[in-house]
Design a protein around this nucleic acid. Structure first.
Lengths: 194, 194
DNA sequence: ATGCAATTAGGACAATTGACCTAATTAATC
DNA sequence: GATTAATTAGGTCAATTGTCCTAATTGCAT
């Protein structure tokens, strides 16, 4: 089997386990069993565990970038783009209820561990932040584009956190509707401070 | 030294370390050094590590209950009470920037670990949720008191998460101001959907 | 088929973990 | 002051962790 194939399979398994169980709680034995390779084989593809984390973060960044820019390329308006971002919460409904937000929970864990990968996890935040900022700028909200981006990012984070804590309630759907209503108000140029 | 004193000192150290480093990452060796006792001594006061977690959660519940009800006893109006809740983010400004929300980050970690203490962590959420709900009811918002409580809880969570990710920015203060403005609008009976 | 490099398997390593045990020390009671 | 109970210290244990090392296997070019 080609080296890159195994490597990709490892990253895929790590990506899932880091999300579902957390970074620290994911051991080589777990991944080895899932991928179907021996533990010693890891160190042919990665030097250390930290290097694996970097690889996972790098892939997440690429995937998210493709998703976000895909919406632009599909011809969505800036407002439609932001709406699509908000609706990520519904797209990943089940997973978010089970494991929270992949970005927020990873950052939180690495932050507490004082792990060097924290900066990589922040890049994931930045990816969404900057992309949202550009959309708001395109909506004519240049002055507070970054503030609006941070605001909707925070709202999404909070909604994901509570959906995780109360997975059996229709809270997430309601919160998404409120965010979409907020977006409408913003787009119409109304002076609603929320 | 009395048994209860040592026990309380252990819980205090655990409380801090669980918050700053996380539950799993906190080892007996760490706490022993901080408290100034031997590792073996733990098991005179607690049977297992899980029992220590329960003790920490129990104390946190008592402390938060005292804080919340203290505002009521101090004669704050329901609206003032909710405002005080929102301002917790500013009271604990530095710690939140460094370690995020103590409730949210603990729940997230225990949830990923499939740890039995997850239910205890959810009780902490419930504590705030129910208390907020009662305040909104007292404000005459009986119909959607719980929804309002969940909403402001989520906003706070999200604000804390992003303040943790971007600790050097004035984002938290801005978000608090927006939440207080939202509270004003709610209290005035306006129809602002946010 | 043969030789060589790429890839994998599996064991060994030291370090750390939560847990347990027993002896020593302290505090309290008579 | 002697006896007993409460509290603490420190060592030991098995299990797990990330890491490393070497031999075996695979795939590919000649």
């Amino acid at each position: 089997m080609k080296s890159s194939e195994t490597r990709e399979k490892i990253i895929t398994a790590l990506d899932t386990l880091y999300y579902e169980r957390g970074f620290e709680a994911t051991s080589f034995a777990d991944v080895a069993e899932i991928v179907g390779i021996s533990r010693g084989n890891f160190y042919y593809h990665f030097k250390t565990k930290d290097e694996m984390l970097d690889a996972v973060i790098e892939r997440r960044i690429l995937e998210r970038t493709a998703m976000l820019d895909g919406w632009i390329d599909a011809g969505q308006s800036p407002k439609q783009c932001v709406a699509s971002f908000i609706r990520i919460l519904l797209m990943n409904n089940q997973k978010i209820r089970s494991y929270g937000c992949p970005v927020g929970t990873l950052f939180s864990e690495l932050s507490k561990l004082n792990h060097p990968g924290e900066s990589g996890a922040r890049e994931l935040y930045d990816l969404f932040r900057v992309w949202l900022k550009r959309r708001f700028e395109a909506m004519g909200k240049s002055d507070d584009a970054d503030a609006l981006a941070m605001h909707i990012l925070a709202r999404s984070q909070g909604a994901a956190s509570l959906a995780n804590a109360y997975p059996d309630e229709p809270f997430l759907e309601q919160e998404v509707q409120q965010m979409l209503a907020w977006l409408d108000a913003i787009a119409d140029g109304m002076q609603i401070k929320t």
